[in-house]
């Protein structure tokens, strides 16, 4: 008896954009028409049949690099967000349940990490660490985990103070039941929304780092480094740098639209019965 949920236009656009990017990311080697690293045209050559977006600064097919770049960008952003969530939610819940000294130490350290702007922090750390994908993902994850820790802790504190949790404690339930059955299900909606927002942020963040030359290293294609490679063309009127920029925008706008819709949908159900 599940009613067909009418999807508002904005959410439909968001879902569509998300689907396109995800399909590109997953099936890049099969979709991509040319080898993304092969020089097959003139530098910044214009669009022509078979090459709808033209060529990049070295004469590589821009569309192929865009599709392959989706894979790197989405993978790094998603991996960083997932790891950040595992760390942030685990520590946040731990602090909220144990309170006392554990909470104080974790929270003060978190405050300290958050007192330095994310980008600046990343720059400092990356200046000392070897440059590879794993390091990049971990650095992003740790920095992001600070925000998630704060949210997860606050949510768990709020929900933990509600009487049904007290009732479960009075019944004699153990920590696992309290966390898994009473607290987590009631924090899922805001955490899900936060996941979307953090993912969008991480897409922007990895792109920014790559654009600054500190993220993904050549010859691997990702959207941020593609902007960097092609930026000098702008003053000659070559818009190759804008194409990956627009792709980043498409992805983040899509995520934001979907998150917006999810939030409004669950809000209208008054936390009742979206068996999500």
């Amino acid at each position: 008896m599940k009613a067909l949920f009418p999807i508002p236009a904005s959410a439909a656009i968001g879902l569509l954009g998300l689907a396109v990017v995800l399909v590109c990311a997953m099936f890049a080697p099969w979709i991509s028409p040319f080898d993304p690293n092969a020089v097959i045209g003139d530098p910044w050559g214009p669009a022509q049949p078979g090459h709808p977006l033209g060529f990049d600064n070295l004469g590589r097919d821009l569309l192929s690099r865009l599709i392959t770049g989706a894979r790197t960008t989405v993978f790094v952003a998603l991996a960083a967000t997932v790891i950040a969530f595992v760390i942030g939610v685990f520590l946040g819940l731990t602090a909220a349940i144990l309170r006392g000294l554990t909470d104080a130490v974790l929270s003060r350290f978190n405050d300290l990490l958050m007192s330095i702007p994310t980008l600046i922090f990343a720059l400092i750390v990356l200046s000392a660490l070897p440059q590879n994908l794993m390091v990049l993902i971990l650095v992003m994850a740790v920095l992001d985990a600070t925000r998630i820790y704060r949210l997860a802790r606050a949510l768990a504190m709020d929900v933990g103070a509600v009487e049904f949790v007290e009732a479960a404690r009075l019944r004699g339930e153990g920590l696992l039941w309290l966390l898994g059955r009473e607290i987590l299900p009631n924090t899922m909606t805001p955490l899900l929304a936060e996941f979307g927002l953090r993912l969008a942020f991480n897409v922007l963040f990895i792109s920014t780092l790559s654009f600054l030359g500190l993220g993904i290293q050549p010859p691997t294609a990702d959207w941020g480094s593609m902007v960097k490679e092609n930026k000098d063309g702008i003053i000659f009127g070559v818009s190759a740098a804008l194409v990956p920029g627009a792709a980043i925008a498409l992805l983040t706008v899509s995520i934001n639209l979907v998150v917006d819709w999810l939030l409004r949908r669950t809000a209208s159900l008054r936390g009742g019965r979206d068996d999500g």
């Binding site: 009487e163 009732a167 009075l170 019944r171 004699g172 299900p185 009631n186």
Partner: peptide
């Protein structure tokens, strides 16, 4: 202390709250 009480102790005393909305898990 709550932690010191056995399951049998806990079972024998039950609590009813003022606001029933917050006394049960909405999920």
């Amino acid at each position: 202390r709550l932690n010191g009480r056995s399951k049998a102790h806990l079972r024998r005393i039950q609590m009813i709250y003022q606001i029933p909305d917050t006394a049960m898990n909405p999920r």
